[in-house]
Design a protein around this nucleic acid. Structure first.
Length: 280
DNA sequence: AAACAAACCTGTGCGC
DNA sequence: TGCGCACAGGTTTGTT
């Protein structure tokens, strides 16, 4: 579910509502959510700690603590982070509850039906061992920026299909299935183009498309699909889905050309939607 | 090097 | 209405 724009929206919510507050108590329901370490490690690492900041790298939410440790939350497919008044009935699949200092009394919930997501406290000095994938993340188009030259370098000599490459977090961090399809459509490029076959003009289009799609999606608060799985920290939905041109629009007329129908194929195990007339 | 399938889970929507 | 299947925003692992 959540890709860069959704995680960024959550990050902003954490920044506005949680940063500066102390975690007074921690409850861990399902152990699977803290499988990277353990229930006790999360409780020990968070209890009494104050959250100093809310950062993001790709789809990873990273919160430095005053203990020197860092809190990492990854929402994966179905994770949600919610702030609620203490005592509010918790939704099903609430696996971690962090009680926050201050008044009114509030709690930070990690809710995750599919349990792919995780919550972990790690020592940033030991990140290579405790969270090795973090160091191997590629360029974040929003946090780092992405230049045409940079993207050209990433694509050069890669005999790789364009879409799986965009989805590879070691190359570009933050792009997921929705925004890969939307970016490729905006760049007028097919998902099955070989990365090293792009002209420099096409690389420029792709760079502009990725950055502008992600930027606009962040401004819209992300995409909330019909299942309303994704919501921001206050439970509010995002609105970028009304701007989707291809994602989940298989069989419908292309909004851009008005002439062809959006097609859907599987690529790398992910459904892929594109316009056969607009994209080459 | 790169593409694929399967694995990890639960929920929903669809065809019959 | 109920049942079974396909599929879902992600990532890793093992196999071709």
């Amino acid at each position: 579910m959540p890709e860069l724009p959704e995680v960024e929206t959550v990050r902003r919510g954490v920044q506005a509502q949680v940063v500066g507050r102390r975690i007074t108590a921690v409850e861990v329901g399902r152990e699977r959510t803290v499988r990277r370490t353990s229930r006790q490690a999360l409780i020990d690492g968070l209890t009494g700690a104050t959250i100093l900041a809310a950062n993001r790298r790709g789809k990873y939410l990273l919160c430095p603590l005053d203990t020197g440790d860092e809190l990492m939350v990854h929402l994966r497919m179905s994770g949600r982070l919610l702030v609620a008044a203490a005592g509010t009935p918790r939704p099903a699949h609430t696996h971690v509850v962090m009680h926050l200092s201050g008044s009114p009394r509030q709690e930070l919930w990690f809710v995750d039906p599919r349990t792919f997501g995780e919550v972990v406290v790690f020592d940033p000095a030991n990140v290579d061992v405790e969270l090795p994938e973090l160091a191997r993340l590629g360029v974040d188009p929003i946090a780092d920026g992405l230049t045409r030259t940079q993207l050209a370098t990433l694509l050069a000599g890669r005999r790789r299909l364009l879409k799986p490459l965009l989805l590879d977090q070691h190359v570009v961090a933050g792009v997921g299935n929705i925004y890969a399809d939307e970016s490729l459509h905006r760049a007028r490029l097919r998902h099955d183009r070989l990365a090293d076959s792009l002209t420099s003009r096409e690389v420029g289009r792709l760079r502009d498309a990725v950055v502008s799609v992600l930027t606009e999606a962040v401004e819209a608060g992300g995409s909330t699909l019909t299942d309303t799985q994704y919501v921001d920290i206050e439970g509010g939905q995002g609105w970028f889905q009304v701007h989707h041109r291809v994602y989940d629009r298989a069989g419908q007329r292309c909004i851009t050309c008005g002439k062809a129908d959006i097609q859907r194929v599987m690529m790398g195990g992910r459904s892929t939607c594109f316009c056969p007339r607009c994209q080459h």
